[in-house]
Computed example of a mutant assay.
Amino acid sequence: MSSLRIPVSPHDHTSGPADAEVVLVEYGDYQCPYCGAAYPVVKELLAAYEGQVRFVFRNFPLAEVHAEAVDAAFVAEFAAEHGKFWEAHDLLFEHQQQLGPDLYATICERLDLPLDELRAAVAEERYLARIRADEEGGIRSGVNGTPTFFLNGHRLDSGTEGLAEALAGVIQRSL
């Protein structure tokens, strides 16, 4: 079983209490259909265990097979720079079938983000180092596909199928 090599830090995109005893890390790709299927499952579990789980999302765009994966990650990182990461994250997954420039413009409009600044950030590859750092951390942790989850630092090889059971077990032990 692989373990998380890069510890969760203030650099990460997190939701939930910083001092939670249960930490769920996802390495994901906004265009990956399996990540899209995992998205509502994770949302449901986080709602069920609200206040007990710290959730971390790290970029792992599979650009070789998903042409929009890196651009979608740029949109999320741009939104993060404006304090709206989770809103963009959710919109990207909720509209996964429409990934592309029109959706990115719509997201900027809905979140009141300056589209011209997003275009400039993309042109200058402002977030590429951040995205690559997430990828490198994933590779060091044994990630070779998406989504890959780590629960309290240990890789879950069951994907979303075993996520609910694993999360419930860890929460039960932490009580």
Rank of each mutant, 00 (worst) to 15 (best):
D102W: 03
F93V: 10
A88E: 08
E77P: 01
A105N: 06
G83P: 00
F85G: 02
A76Y: 04
V75F: 10
D116A: 14
F74S: 04
T106N: 14
F85H: 09
Y104G: 07
F78M: 01
A69N: 05
V70H: 01
E94V: 12
D116F: 09
L115T: 04
D71W: 09
W86H: 04
Q96N: 14
A73I: 05
V75C: 10
D90V: 07
W86T: 02
P101C: 10
E81R: 03
A73H: 06
P101Y: 11
A72F: 07
A79Y: 04
L115N: 01
E81C: 00
F85Y: 15
R110M: 13
Q96M: 14
E87I: 09
L103S: 09
K84N: 04
F85M: 06
D112N: 11
H95K: 15
L91I: 10
P101K: 13
C108F: 01
E109Y: 10
A76Q: 06
L99N: 13
A80R: 05
H95P: 08
C108Q: 01
F74H: 14
L111A: 01
T106K: 15
D112A: 13
G100Y: 10
L103H: 08
F74D: 07
F85V: 05
Q98V: 05
A72M: 07
W86V: 01
I107D: 01
F74T: 03
A73Q: 06
V75T: 11
L111R: 00
Q97W: 11
A79Q: 06
A80F: 03
W86Y: 05
L111E: 00
E87K: 12
A79M: 09
F93D: 08
E77N: 10
L113M: 00
L113I: 01
A80D: 07
D112L: 05
R110Q: 15
H89L: 13
E77W: 02
A72W: 05
G100Q: 11
A105S: 13
A105E: 14
L113G: 00
H82T: 03
F85P: 01
P101L: 14
E109G: 12
F93L: 11
D112I: 01
I107M: 07
C108Y: 00
E81W: 01
D102P: 01
E81T: 02
A76V: 10
K84P: 03
A76L: 11
C108W: 00
H89F: 15
H89W: 12
E81Q: 05
Q97K: 14
V75I: 15
P101E: 15
I107P: 01
P114E: 12
E87S: 15
T106Q: 15
D102Y: 05
V70A: 06
F93G: 08
D90T: 13
L92E: 09
A69D: 04
L92C: 11
L92G: 08
D102C: 05
A79G: 09
L92F: 12
L99M: 13
A69Y: 03
D71Y: 10
